[in-house]
Amino acid sequence: MFQVDIIEQCKQNNRKAQLQLYNQYCHGMYIVAKRFLKDANDAEDVVQEAFIKAFSKLNQYKAEVTFGAWLKRIVVNKSIDFLKSKKQELVELDAVHLKVVDTTEDDKWLVEDTITLNDVKNAINNLPDKYKYVVMLYLIDGYDHQEISDILNISEVASRTQLSRGKAKLQELLTVKTYYGTRY
């Protein structure tokens, strides 16, 4: 069955088609939610809420982007809303999706070889929230500034500014400090 056919059947409340669409996307959307949320149960809840919202708003889906991209945006928004409501910290990153070194924009954005993935995770978790969300959405999820401004309800200029400051703060946090030759 083609993707368009499944979506059309879902729009008509076909439960079998909805289950098929859910099964196709639930694991990927869980991974997206897990990047933002520490607790697996919270990530599962957010994914469930995202699917409920997606199915209830399916008539608004215009196929300007893939269904997966449309659903991912809902999951990201739901994850951020959850974090804001619980004032929890951002979380674990999947090493496969990590793009900390963005050399296309800034050649000096390099870190020392001694920096580990855990160092990067901790540094991102220690960023102020206003930088943390923009850094994660841009560097990890690959959203552009227009999409980030829509997701976070900020201007594109604010997105660019917060990314720049967030990257600078991240680089500062990732700079290896030594004291008489000993890393601390």
Rank of each mutant, 00 (worst) to 15 (best):
V47I: 14
V47E: 06
Q48H: 14
Q48D: 12
Q48K: 13
Q48Y: 10
Q48I: 13
Q48N: 14
E49P: 03
F51I: 11
I52S: 15
I52H: 10
I52P: 06
I52Y: 09
I52D: 15
I52Q: 15
K53A: 14
A54L: 12
F55C: 04
F55V: 06
F55Q: 08
S56L: 07
S56F: 02
S56R: 12
S56V: 00
L58A: 08
L58V: 13
L58Q: 09
L58P: 11
N59G: 14
N59W: 02
Q60P: 01
Q60T: 15
Y61F: 15
Y61V: 02
A63F: 09
A63R: 10
A63W: 01
E64K: 15
T66M: 04
F67I: 07
F67G: 03
G68Y: 12
G68T: 05
A69N: 08
A69E: 11
A69K: 14
A69P: 03
W70D: 04
L71F: 08
K72G: 03
R73P: 00
R73M: 10
R73F: 00
I74R: 07
I74M: 07
V76E: 06
N77Y: 02
N77G: 08
K78E: 11
S79V: 01
I80N: 01
I80S: 01
D81I: 08
D81R: 10
D81H: 03
D81Q: 12
F82C: 07
F82W: 12
L83Q: 11
L83V: 12
L83A: 04
K84E: 08
S85W: 00
S85V: 00
S85E: 11
K86N: 06
K86C: 03
K87A: 01
K87F: 04
E89N: 07
